[in-house]
Amino acid sequence: MHQDNPLITFEQEGSRITAWTKTRSSLVLSEDPKRDHGYGYLTAPLRQRGLEVTVEYGLSDYIVHAALPDGSSMIISPPQEPPTEDPESWTVIRHREAGPAVYEVIYDSEPGGPHAQHGGSIPSLLAAVDARLDQLGVPPRPEQQRSSRERAADAVLHPAGFIPAVAFGGECYHRLPTGMTDPAEQRQAMTRAFTTLKAEDFDVLRDSTLLKPGIPLPAPTKQVSATATPPIPPRPGIR
């Protein structure tokens, strides 16, 4: 496994499919990954901005707690009841009890929430968090050059049909063309990219929405055994 291997995350929102590439250095900054309880993809970007971040146990699942410079705190939480391995939504709350009390909903992608269309999307969650941190004057994270493995991932995504794009906050990602709306065509491009990336030893994560009805990955093709006896054609004149 490559030490500088990036994580490629495929996501689906409606008919739109995107691929986000994150370097391992931006995903894991803890000397003890167990301390983050699987939330390294959330804690690392926050620590890169100089915040003190801990992972604590909430009602029935772990939550991410970040201390902000103004004395308030930011809580990033998946649904608590019941807990899920792949959260389908997130909430981000900023609060402060001492001094002027603060209670602010920064992000809510739960059903019926203002950001429900994003569901469990991690890039959408981080984009909202970064935008609010910018407004609060939190220093930005240092810019990092793209590694050779990131460029290698680009070389796989492009032939598969994905095109480069830039998010509102300036983050680069890839997406399928907007004109590609046929599920079969999308499934073909998605499968081609996924299988090639795995063959090239990349870490690949599919958003939970891609595992639901809509654009499922095709089942493996059944192989015909070379030792199977072929059917015997009927002899002429015999019915």
Rank of each mutant, 00 (worst) to 15 (best):
184 A>R: 09
172 C>W: 01
34 K>R: 13
151 R>A: 09
223 Q>T: 15
178 T>F: 08
99 G>H: 09
72 S>P: 11
50 G>K: 07
195 T>K: 10
212 K>N: 12
184 A>V: 14
103 Y>A: 09
63 I>D: 03
105 V>R: 15
219 A>L: 14
47 R>A: 06
218 P>F: 12
88 E>K: 12
28 V>M: 05
11 E>Q: 09
192 R>H: 12
161 G>I: 01
238 I>T: 08
210 L>H: 00
202 F>Q: 00
174 H>K: 02
59 L>F: 03
159 P>A: 09
13 E>T: 15
178 T>K: 10
8 I>L: 14
182 D>A: 11
116 A>N: 07
165 A>Q: 07
142 P>V: 00
157 L>D: 02
181 T>S: 14
212 K>A: 08
112 G>H: 12
154 D>R: 09
223 Q>A: 13
167 A>L: 06
172 C>H: 08
31 E>L: 14
169 G>E: 11
85 E>S: 13
129 V>L: 07
119 G>S: 08
204 V>S: 11
138 V>Q: 10
206 R>E: 04
158 H>G: 08
111 P>C: 05
42 L>H: 05
19 A>Q: 06
23 T>K: 11
34 K>N: 10
4 D>A: 15
197 L>M: 07
24 R>S: 12
84 T>D: 00
229 T>E: 07
68 L>V: 12
19 A>H: 04
28 V>W: 02
136 L>N: 06
155 A>D: 07
223 Q>D: 08
41 Y>D: 06
181 T>K: 15
29 L>Y: 00
41 Y>K: 04
53 V>K: 04
171 E>F: 01
62 Y>N: 13
175 R>F: 01
4 D>V: 11
225 S>D: 13
74 M>V: 00
24 R>L: 08
207 D>L: 03
13 E>A: 11
47 R>K: 14
85 E>Y: 01
217 L>G: 12
160 A>F: 03
23 T>Q: 12
142 P>T: 04
196 T>S: 13
236 P>H: 03
60 S>C: 04
234 P>H: 10
176 L>M: 10
134 D>K: 15
206 R>W: 03
229 T>Y: 01
10 F>Q: 05
86 D>L: 14
146 R>I: 09
172 C>R: 14
207 D>E: 05
233 P>S: 10
154 D>W: 00
127 A>C: 02
218 P>N: 11
101 A>I: 06
136 L>K: 07
234 P>W: 08
180 M>N: 02
151 R>I: 00
132 R>Y: 00
